[in-house]
Design a protein around this nucleic acid. Structure first.
Length: 773
DNA sequence: TAACCTAATAGTCAA
DNA sequence: TGTTGACTATTAGGTTAG
């Protein structure tokens, strides 16, 4: 019989010294099914410098057989021995032995995990797959039907996703000592929400063991395919596991009836299910400045911050202890579970597509770095092309030249067209066959990169260009399909997520090739791409100017031109002839350029304002300053500078009267390293230190919010982290006027000829005291 | 000692 | 553990005027 399965988790077991791949997933009718597949063995390659090594390799223990193959490494043919080993746990030992054998130059692909090896070799990525199979004995719990595969799997293209069952969970911990510790502090609430909207609030009524057992029972009854959490890889799941073990309670929530375990990169996996920590997905979305669950949920329109309970983390124990506040804490826990579930629903299509395109399983793809995702995608392609995966090696960092940014022509311009090269770097790689395996030294039938002179074979097609072509053409056909489908239908959402993911992956390839940690790293490849990019942009400028165009700004792949239809259409036509697509991205009715690169504001025909690069677009300025700048931008473009000046004066007056909400004065900055690595104690570092003194665990990656209060010394000595705000702080209004509001406003007003003094209230009597004091 | 200058450090954004 | 280019604030440590 034929079994079609949408995999949720793929793992393996060992039966009679033979590995058995086990695919847990969902069938088309929504049943939980699992397929076991035997017959596939782990292996790795050895590059041979002489044939005599083969007999010695054959004599190694746990080796089943050796096959001599012709493969390629960076495009060059090599002879390799494929060393097939009994079970995955024997690979390491065999690899180490093989490496010491004379005649073995190098050992390759010994660090590829078995289940991923299986998927690469069988041409399977997470998504529908089909087996010939027959019913079999069980090897887990919570499964409706077991099968044993009698054929290799086949990937099935389908735009459908089965009805997956998912649950979101969140734990609250009693934390009177600051950050909680599982050895000491009990779990007090576990909140859960399932796919059909049922919410469960499990409460510690004095028996924490029962709480955990209740959670296990509820979860196994729901038997979800996906468990969503928010920061659950770093907090909730390890805390639960540790706490259960401290209490001596079992936590059998995997489909093997075991506890979750930590696997690679700190990820916590639940066999048979996909544990998806949404925090990682949010973290890489640069549009979302605040990464906490409440902000992320608000960003996606899932739950407004104003409509939910917000409790500062360090206060949880107080709400628990205070009988009159406990209900609020329960509501808070509930809101977290609801937000997490709804966020999961929004993000799942995206996650499924990233998994399907990269080849990484659902739970791993959210944890994996961008580089790792691209690399797995390349591994699949390389295998089919007979290319060996190079080993990961530590390399020295070698900087190289990037893109051009034009000097802006400052001033207020009318009717400006912004043109850009569509997917410039991917296009360059495809157009000139730029790839690590086509890079050549010496004479050849080659494309030669400008300035840097690196040479790339015209044929055969390289690994990178081939992959990009697949990504680009897949995206193109999806976008065509989308035109025929009703927007917001399930299929539309699926296709849209897919085309976005394809674009993300295509755009990530350039960054990957310049990453020193990449298996297929070749600095020359990245360098050639940016060199061609510079040359494309400069020649486009020259051409535009030669036919009377006026270029006022440009960055990497974009040109800002005074709108002239003739010039623009000729430029577009010319680039098309050269194999590049140039498009009008947008047209501004008005555009304000300053002397700064990468910063401008523009007025679109529909009245919208674009603010690019300025403080209003940044996450590290207080909301007040950002709001002021946004308003100033709008007033300046729509009504003129005087209106903007009046507005700013009004805000400053309000601020001095203390009638501005404290929340709009919070400044957020990320700790990019752990606290003792800092050479300079910046304000947010000082704020973080204060938190640590008070028992909070803050560190690398955390966002620190603080306000500035009056006092002596450095700014860093005058910050109060928001978790420690009592409400009676003496806010340093002058700081907010002079260092936040006025600079943000002046950034836009100054180039228009406004003097800073125009923003300040005239000082009345007693001004001499102000100067002295 | 206050005022001023400058390099280094750090974070964030544009592309 | 994707890239370079660019802007900006703040600290840290100096020099200088008085």
């Amino acid at each position: 019989m034929r079994i079609r399965i949408f995999p949720v988790d793929i793992t393996y077991g060992i039966v009679n010294n033979e590995p058995e791949i086990r695919v847990f997933g969902v069938s088309e009718d929504g049943k939980h099914v699992a397929v076991a597949h035997r017959g596939f063995r782990p292996y790795f390659y050895a590059i041979l410098s002489n044939e005599e090594a083969v007999s010695e390799l054959r004599r190694m223990r746990n080796v089943i057989s050796i096959e001599i193959e012709e493969r390629k490494l960076f495009g060059k043919p090599v002879k390799v021995a494929k060393i097939i080993v009994t079970t995955p746990d024997k690979v390491r030992d065999a690899r180490e032995r093989a490496a010491t054998i004379k005649g073995v130059q190098d050992v390759l692909e010994a660090d590829i995990r078995f289940t991923l090896r299986y998927m690469i070799d069988k041409g399977i990525k997470p998504g529908w797959m089909e087996f010939e199979a027959e019913p079999s004995d069980g090897f887990g719990t919570g499964i409706d039907a077991f099968y044993r595969a009698t054929s290799d799997p086949v990937q099935v293209e389908s735009t459908l996703v089965p009805p997956l069952r998912y649950v979101a969970f969140d734990i609250e911990v009693y934390n009177p000592f600051g950050s909680p510790s599982p050895e000491r502090d009990p779990i007090i609430i576990i909140s859960m929400m399932d796919w059909s909207g049922n919410i469960k609030l499990l409460v510690n009524d004095g028996d924490e063991e029962k709480l955990i057992r209740d959670f296990v029972r509820e979860l196994n009854e729901l038997n979800p395919d996906i468990l969503f959490g928010y920061n659950s890889s770093r907090f909730d799941l390890p805390y639960l596991v540790r706490r259960a073990s401290v209490l001596g309670v079992k936590l059998p929530i995997t489909k093997y009836g075991t506890a979750p375990e930590q696997s690679t990169y700190g990820h916590w996996s639940i066999i048979g299910r996909a544990h998806i920590d949404l925090y990682g997905v949010i973290q890489e979305m640069s549009d979302i400045k605040r990464k906490s669950l409440d902000y992320a949920a608000e960003y996606f329109g899932v739950m407004k911050r104003s409509e939910r309970v917000l409790i500062p983390g360090h206060d949880i124990h107080r709400y628990w202890d205070d009988a009159s506040k406990r209900d609020e804490l329960l509501k808070y826990a509930r809101d977290d579970a609801v937000s997490t579930l709804r966020l999961g629903e929004k993000l799942l299509p995206h996650i499924i597509q990233l998994a399907n395109i990269s080849g990484l399983p659902l739970d791993q793809v959210v944890e994996a770095s961008v580089g790792a995702r691209v690399e797995w995608m390349i591994m699949h392609e390389a295998y089919r092309a007979g290319e060996l995966a190079p080993n990961r090696v530590e390399r020295e960092y070698e900087p190289y030249r990037g893109a051009i940014v034009l000097e802006p022509r400052p001033g207020l311009h009318n009717n400006v067209a912004v043109l850009d090269f569509s997917s410039m770097y991917p296009s360059i790689m495809m157009r000139f066959n730029v790839s690590p395996d086509t890079l050549m030294e010496g004479e050849c039938d080659c494309y030669v990169a400008p300035e840097v002179g690196y040479r790339f074979l015209k044929s055969p097609r390289g690994l990178y260009p081939r992959m990009l072509e697949k990504l680009v053409s897949a995206r193109r056909s999806i976008r065509e399909q989308m035109r025929l489908i009703e927007a917001k239908s399930p299929e539309f959402i699926y296709l849209d997520a897919r085309q976005r993911a394809l674009k993300i992956m295509a755009n990530a390839m350039y960054g990957y090739c310049g990453w020193t940690g990449a298996r297929w790293y070749r600095r020359e490849v990245a360098e050639a791409v940016t060199a061609w990019g510079r040359s494309l942009l400069t020649s486009a400028i020259k051409f535009a100017e030669s036919i009377g165009g006026r270029v006022i700004y440009g960055d990497t792949d974009s040109l800002f031109l005074l709108n002239d239809e003739g010039v623009i259409s000729k430029l577009i036509e010319k680039e098309e002839k050269d194999g590049f697509e140039v498009k009008i991205d947008k047209v501004y009715d008005k555009l304000l350029l300053t002397e700064s690169k990468k910063r401008y504001i523009g007025l679109l025909p529909n009245g919208d304002i674009d603010i690019v690069g300025f403080e209003a677009a940044r996450g590290d300025w207080c909301d007040l300053a950002k709001d002021v700048q946004e308003e100033v931008a709008e007033l300046v473009l729509k009504r003129g500078t005087n209106a903007a000046i009046e507005y700013v004066r009004g805000i400053i007056k309000k601020l001095r009267e203390h009638s501005i909400d404290l929340n709009s004065l919070i400044i957020w900055k990320t700790l990019d390293k752990s606290i003792d690595e800092y050479k300079v104690i910046a304000p947010h570092v000082a704020a973080a230190r204060k938190l640590i003194e008070r028992g909070f665990r803050v560190g690398k990656g955390d966002q620190i919010g603080f306000v500035v209060v009056k006092g002596e010394g450095r700014l860093a000595d005058r910050v109060v982290p928001i978790a420690l705000i009592k409400g009676n702080e003496d806010i340093d209004i002058d700081y907010y006027v002079e260092k936040q509001v006025i600079p943000a406003a002046m950034r836009i007003l100054e180039p228009l000829g406004v003097n800073e003094s125009a923003l300040r209230e005239k000082r009345g009597g007693g001004s001499i005291l102000d100067f002295l004091g």
